[in-house]
Write a protein that binds this DNA or RNA. Structure first.
Length: 958
RNA sequence: GGGCGGUUAGCUCAGCUGGUUAGAGCAUCUCGUUUACACCGAGAGGGUCGGGAGUUCGAAUCUCUCACCGCCCA
């Protein structure tokens, strides 16, 4: 029994349990052992996270693909899991400690803190997973992974060690993006450039050997800077080599104000003559561009800001070197001042000596940490880097060759653009939560990288024994006793960038580096579904790592979907407070409605601005389906054993089979092409505008009438078509369809595992041969390569049925329209006269008279040679249908209506004729286009003639 | 500054490789208690497809240009 009301919350809760218990989503089910695998790895959400709109869209689309392919018989693995999200998670736990006034991270120490994070992960790590389940995600939950699982951690260590061995990971001292709040290095991608209204300070740097005077321009050179506080670390001044203003001073020294350091004026084309004064100060230790300039001219690097963003002068040897008397005193005064306070103080001090020429307001881009929001400081430290440039080459080649394709294709450009200019990837983070770097250091700083501590220690000790730093005996003791080697050999404290482990996700989750059968069977994966915001962070890096370690691309298709934005088109974010919570939409309208909305709006290449009215509309759609199913149930519709829909006899039933097959084809092709919105639109139209609006309505007289073979057939067909709908709709609305599947008939199994209406054809021998040639000797059945399906729905196509039912629909629609226009109340039944009907019409009209009467509010249908006087005359498929309404209708109004119709026909004739009169059109346009135009003209001419006749009749009558 | 994308009905959006009478949902108006459904049914109104130019027999669709909006990278 179908409940009277559709209650999404109830059935969603229930179906979740049904799916869970039945292990429906398990990969490698015995019954699919011989099936072709289909694999998607989920973009692992952060363990800290909760479901937002982006997740909802992303996972809905993946689920559509997975459910679709599962129904097509494939062995689907949708690999779920979560990401440890280094910085984000550490921040959450630290904030929690602070809120609860518990000891801070540093107070409790690394080990205790990590315990705490794991505890937190255990408590709340399920949140996001449960939310994904509420959305209906059909992942193989038994295979859930976490980036810090033992197995995945092994993969991380192995990758690190191998890349290091191959020289693709190395340690380097260079400028990094330093977060002074989180006290860690971050990668370029984690830096957000934001426009800030600041100032441009024009500073006078006295030229050596001249007596400085603010009034004597020859005694100084003016440099413009946005960061005056870094002047303490200046080691040069740069001017453009072709800038005539400065030709004479190149090579000379200036005396750095306040500091007294002698620094050189160099010529470098980095300096832009158009900007500022045309001369810039060079601070190689605090600016990425200056670092390069410094390298070109051999300038010293003097760090004057520490990792917390404060001036660091007092015990700073680099800073104090070669400074005149009195510099130390200045250092003492300014030491440990925060960089922004220091900026103010230094400017004041410079002003007091006349070193500031002027200050201009200046808007410029300032780097901010995407997590901390704090201003990023370029900072000179030792960090680990991945040689991304080398790894990027095969990753680019794979996309160029089409081994991996982006959908939509235009994202390839973005991918190449970034890959071609890729920079070394800084992977070390000064955090605790994450994969600790497998590197150990000896007393002289020599690094030993190995998969295990034992291995590293034994290498190190061997090395130091050989170098005679320690004796053989000491080495042996240290090897055996950890305490003895503490302080001699120490492990790198840092952890890896979260994205380092994410980059391995497509194979680490399958069990690599262990020799797992899953790796063999499910790698490479088929599709990756993700947003464009992480193409660089994640997609590109998976490509690099996948190709390097697996020698095969990680996925063949990368489907890039839109970002869900707020109504203004802005990215949703907590900080902006413009987030629409998908869970509250699910509560309100149901997961099915939300999913359908997202799918229907997921047009390629465009962002989604979500309107809740759409969600509501699709909830109504679900209700409509619900009620249609109730109607079928009330009429005892069921598919009998052995029923063959292709062999039904009733025209109406043949018509719905025809329409259904057409829809099946559309939906199938649209999903295959990742055109989710087209697929959703197609099934929506079929359910509402074809099945409900017409098929069920037209079937009513039969269903409500006496028992007959036609009635039996119709009952079967109503149920059959409903089942087709449930199948086609299931990937989009899994809950309601599964529920209806279960309650409407005795089933062999779950809808989730039922067969898709169109089966992909088995590969032909030629295709198999091609397959073997491209992928080596392989069992086609377990090959990850899929063969394009072949459709054979010829059994269902039926133009005759289409024509007949089409006529009924047109007739009813037109009568309704004219009745409304003439203000005929629904209670007034009118007669219908089919004037001068063709043999075909005469033959089929009686078959439909019941429905037509019912739907068009008619009292009677009859035939006549010509329309009665004073009747309203309609043209239905070229024949006159007359409503004898003499006295009821306003003759003048009817004349106006007919005139309007004639006007329209005239316009059509004119349009077609002008085209056909155009010689160039006839000559150049495709034959079928021209033919179509001729047909249009003929039809319009015929229509006009009939209308004129009708008008004539009306005139005679009045 | 470089790159990408957008601008279609009051609102949120479709419209693929140029040929449709430019569509859908919501909203609006009129009518409706026909026994699945008012989360419904029937009907209607509403768009010079951002402006301009060009290519073409034919442009919402291709090209150029301008304007505005958004995103990414410097």
């Amino acid at each position: 029994m179908i409940e009277k009301n559709y209650q999404p919350a109830d059935i969603e809760a229930r179906m979740s349990v049904v799916w869970e218990d039945s292990l429906a989503f398990k990969a490698g089910r015995p019954d699919r052992r011989d099936a072709v695998p289909f694999t998607i790895v989920i973009p692992p959400p952060n363990v800290t996270g909760s479901l937002h709109m982006g997740h909802a869209l992303n996972n809905t689309l993946q689920d559509i693909l997975c459910r679709f392919e599962r129904m097509r018989g494939r062995d689907v693995l949708w690999q779920p899991g979560t990401d440890h999200a280094g910085i984000a998670t550490q921040m959450v736990v630290e904030r929690q400690l602070m809120e609860r006034q518990q000891p801070s991270r540093r107070e409790m120490g690394r080990e205790k803190f990590l315990e705490r994070v794991w505890q937190w992960k255990a408590e709340s790590g399920d949140t996001i997973i449960n939310q994904l389940k509420r959305l209906g995600a059909s992942c193989d939950w038994s295979r859930e992974r976490f980036t810090m699982d033992e197995g995945l951690s092994k993969a991380v260590v192995k990758v690190f060690v191998e890349l290091h061995r191959d020289g693709l990971i190395y340690k380097d001292k260079r400028l990094v993006n330093w977060d002074t709040k989180l006290l860690t290095a971050i990668s370029d991608l984690e830096v957000q450039q934001t426009e800030v209204k600041g100032h441009l300070w024009y500073l006078r740097y006295p030229i050596e050997g001249k007596t400085f005077s603010p009034d004597d321009p020859a005694s100084f050179i003016v440099v413009a800077t946005t960061r005056p506080e870094t002047m303490l670390g200046d080691t040069g001044v740069a001017v453009h080599p072709e800038d005539e203003r400065y030709q004479k001073v190149v090579g000379k020294n200036v005396i750095l104000p306040l500091v007294g350091r002698k620094i050189q004026i160099v010529a470098d084309d980095y300096s832009d003559p158009e900007k500022g004064s045309g001369a810039v100060k060079v601070t190689p230790a605090h600016d990425f561009n200056d670092f390069e300039v410094g390298n070109r001219h051999g300038l010293a690097r003097i760090s004057v800001i520490d990792k917390e963003g404060c001036l660091d002068l007092l015990d700073n040897e680099d800073y104090l070197r070669d400074l005149p008397e009195g510099a130390a005193q200045f250092a003492e005064e300014f030491n440990k001042l925060d960089r922004f306070a220091a900026r103010k103080r230094i400017v004041e001090r410079l002003e007091s000596f006349g070193f500031v020429e002027r200050i201009e307001p200046h808007t410029h881009m300032v780097p901010h940490g995407d997590r901390s929001g704090t201003v990023i400081e370029p900072y000179l430290t030792d960090q680990w880097y991945v040689d991304a440039k080398t790894l990027a080459k095969p990753a680019m080649a794979a996309v160029r060759s089409g081994e991996t394709t982006f959908v939509p294709k235009n994202w390839e450009k973005t991918y190449f653009e970034w890959m071609e200019n890729i920079q070394p990837w800084c992977i070390s983070r000064q955090l605790w939560w994450g994969h600790q770097i497998p590197a150990w250091y000896g007393p002289d700083g020599k690094v030993f990288v190995a998969e295990t501590e034992e291995e590293a220690v034994s290498h190190a000790l061997g090395y130091y024994v050989e170098q005679e730093v320690i004796t053989v005996e000491q080495g042996r003791e240290m090897a055996l006793d950890r305490n003895k080697r503490d302080g001699f050999i120490t492990r790198d404290e840092d952890v890896l960038d979260t994205w380092f482990s994410s980059a391995l996700w497509p194979f680490s989750t399958l069990g690599w580096p262990a020799d797992a059968p899953e790796v063999q069977r499910y790698y490479p994966t088929n599709a990756l579904v993700t947003g464009f915001d992480i193409i660089f962070f994640w997609v590109a890096r998976m490509m690099m790592m996948g190709l390097h370690f697996m020698k095969e691309v990680p996925f063949s298709t990368i489907y890039i979907h839109a970002l869900v934005r707020d109504e203004k088109g802005a990215k949703m974010s907590k900080s902006k407070g413009n987030v629409i919570d998908p869970l509250s939409l699910i509560d309100q309208y149901g997961a099915d409605a939300l999913r359908f909305t997202l799918a229907a709006m997921a047009a390629q290449g465009r962002d989604i601005k979500l309107a809740t009215s759409r969600v509501e509309g699709y909830r109504n759609f679900a209700t409509k389906l619900w009620n249609a199913s109730r109607f079928a149930e009330m009429n005892h519709c069921a598919v009998p054993e052995g029923f063959e829909p292709a062999k039904v006899k009733e025209t109406l039933n043949r018509w719905i089979a025809h329409e259904s097959a057409h829809t099946t084809r559309e939906v199938t092709e649209a999903i295959e092409a990742y055109r989710f919105n087209d697929a959703a639109g197609s099934i929506y139209r079929f359910v509402w505008n074809v099945y409900c609006d017409w098929y069920l309505e037209l079937a009513k007289p039969v269903l409500l009438g006496p028992d007959s073979p036609a009635k039996a057939e119709t009952r079967a067909m109503v149920a059959w078509a409903r089942d087709e709908i449930l199948k086609l709709l299931h990937p989009f609305m899994p809950f309601i369809t599964e529920e209806l599947w279960e309650v409407t008939a005795k089933r062999d199994g779950l809808l989730a595992l039922a067969s898709w209406p169109l089966k992909p054809a088995a590969p032909t021998p030629e295709q198999l041969a091609m397959l073997a040639a491209t992928t080596g000797p392989t069992d086609a059945l377990v090959s990850p390569v899929w063969v394009l399906p072949i459709f054979d729905h010829a059994d269902f196509t039926d133009p005759a049925a289409e024509a007949e039912i089409g006529w009924v629909i047109d007739l009813v629609t037109q009568i309704r329209s004219v009745r409304a226009e003439m203000n005929i109340p629904p209670a007034t039944l009118t007669a219908l006269v089919l004037a001068g009907a063709s043999a075909g019409t005469k033959e089929r009209a009686p078959r439909w008279s019941d429905v037509i009467k019912r739907m068009a509010r008619l009292s009677d249908i009859s035939f006549a040679d010509r329309a009665p006087d004073g009747a309203v005359q309609l043209l239905v498929r070229g024949e006159v249908a007359a409503l004898p309404l003499k006295g009821v209708i306003d003759v003048a109004a009817e004349r106006t209506r007919l005139d309007k119709e004639i006007g329209k026909a005239d316009a059509d004739i004119k349009r077609a004729e002008s085209k056909l009169a155009n010689e160039k059109f006839v000559a150049n346009a495709a034959e079928e286009v021209v033919e179509e135009e001729r047909e249009k003209r003929e039809a319009a001419l015929a229509r006009k003639a009939k209308l004129l006749e009708a008008l004539e009749r009306l005139k005679q009558a009045s």
